[in-house]
Amino acid sequence: MREKSGNRVRLCTAALVLSASLMAWSAIAQEMTTSIVDIHQGSLLSDRARSLGSGGYELQNGSRVSFNQWYHASWVDMHVDLLTPITEDTGILWGFGTGEAAEKYRIAPSLKLGFLTQMHPGPNSTLSLSFTATIGGKLTEKTCQANYGDLGSFNVNCRLAASEMAPEETLKYLVNAKPESQHLWLNYRVTF
């Protein structure tokens, strides 16, 4: 599982990359060059999906079922954020996420779109504002087919199949989560 400290490092890296891009922006704006702002793997939803993989239970014959086999993804959702300048002080932020999948969940691919604009209140200061919206990227937990012998087979929440909950009740606890859909970012920078 990705650690929180790892997320912080990633965010700092992203901010540095973004700042560097902004500095280079004015120089390249005229050429409409698209720059990579950030590349990272993992997200809050990736972390959440991975957390579903802890635990397990015994089947009727005593054999152990580990959730990890169902919630372990071989590829972690990768996000690439790009910036395409339109004018010297505005640009389009866009990007995508690859999504990820394991046997019992899927994070759908996502698209990010937004803008960045900046102004200069003083000769040494910059105020920038960005807004992005994300489409897709939803985490969807899949069901299991549980065979209870004489009692029949049911569609269940894999993690709750051995609980006292009625099989149909377990479906209420399937994880369906959306990513952060909108992001507003305001930054003020003074150089001295």
């Binding site: 089947l59 009727q60 014959n61 005593g62 087919q145 549980a146 894999c158 051995a162 609980s163």
Partner: peptide, 11 residues
């Protein structure tokens, strides 16, 4: 009781 509540098989 725990086994009576558990599946025989799951996939």
């Amino acid at each position: 009781l725990s086994r009576a509540l558990a599946p025989l098989a799951i996939r």
